[in-house]
Design a protein around this nucleic acid. Structure first.
Lengths: 171, 171
DNA sequence: TAGGTTTGTTTCAAACTTGAACCAAGACCG
DNA sequence: CGGTCTTGGTTCAAGTTTGAAACAAACCTA
């Protein structure tokens, strides 16, 4: 099977995409580091928690939503806990489980940083795109994400069709 | 000035984008780590070098093309040099300069890994998009990248309009 | 219900990134 | 020239990420 190389159009799209995503993440990380003292991911953790019922979520569910590994999340939450933004609680129904809960301090920080963050996302992303493009971006991103989740690191193909990990709310 | 929050459409686009970019980078990093023993960025370094005149480039120019900091590049090149993929050479015309040159070994590794890499990019990205969407992705990405480069970490606005760092080829 | 497997989470070492500080070497200017 | 500013690169410490290994609790299943 000979390789199907990228067409010139694909090349251009790919390179532009790489550059844009690098630059964008960088800009957002810098802004949040400045204004909230934490990188984007950490801010996202607070953000997701703040929108969850009772502002708490099990570690695995949190990792799932953020599309990161559990290990990475453990590290991040440990830091956030040290800073008092998050508190870890035991899960009553499953003694293995551990729940991350947003503290009032954490919420306050999020609240203070949110306007600046939104402004940044707006000025670097949405201000540059037409309404149409925003829709296109969503569709493109969704298509990509979907493809990547279906198989993740697919367990040998002789496995069960595919079962989504059920997320027990646990509280 | 009251914050202009993201509209529901923007929210969706933003979240989908974040998820997609995280997942995609992850998948590509894993594939390359597997097949080439190095993360995506390191592979890109070899790739950019391989397309440069004489397969060599000054550190600053390389960093510029890859949209990364010089510090990050220094670290990466040091590793690649240790692995024999790249060689550092002095710059004749500017004694400060240092040039990264792709070695034959480096080229060989690149050559061997390229098909798998392209295949991955294809299957996770381009196979999921229509021809039209590829064009849209390029336009969107270009718009974003452009906005982010113009100002970078803009030096106080009372500065010179903006001058692109000239990239002396130096050899 | 003992033994084996899966699931939820953390731990650990190695690799990588960040940003500020540092050190030359070129560029400028009086 | 001699001082000063800028540019190209590296260094260093602190922070983050990775992936594999370790654990413990829950879940089978015979």
């Amino acid at each position: 099977m000979t390789t199907r190389w990228l067409t010139p159009e694909e090349q251009r799209a790919w390179r532009a995409y790489i550059a844009a995503s690098l630059l964008l993440e960088d800009a957002i990380d810098r802004q949040l580091q400045q204004d909230a003292g934490m990188p984007h991911l950490y801010y996202s953790i607070l953000s997701v928690l703040s929108e969850s019922p009772e502002r708490r979520l099990r570690m695995t569910d949190l990792a799932e939503r953020l599309k990161i590994t559990r290990s990475r999340l453990t590290y991040a939450v440990t830091r956030l806990e040290k800073d008092g933004m998050v508190r870890r609680e035991a899960c009553r129904y499953d003694k293995r489980g551990s729940i991350a809960a947003l503290t009032d301090d954490g919420f306050a920080v999020l609240d203070r940083a949110a306007p600046g963050h939104v402004e940044t996302v707006r000025s670097f992303l949405f201000d540059r795109l037409s309404e149409e493009q925003v829709g296109q971006l969503e569709e493109i991103s969704t298509a990509i994400a979907q493809g990547l989740q279906e198989d993740g690191t697919r367990p040998a193909s002789d496995d069960v069709p595919w079962r989504r990990r059920s997320s027990s709310t646990c509280s």
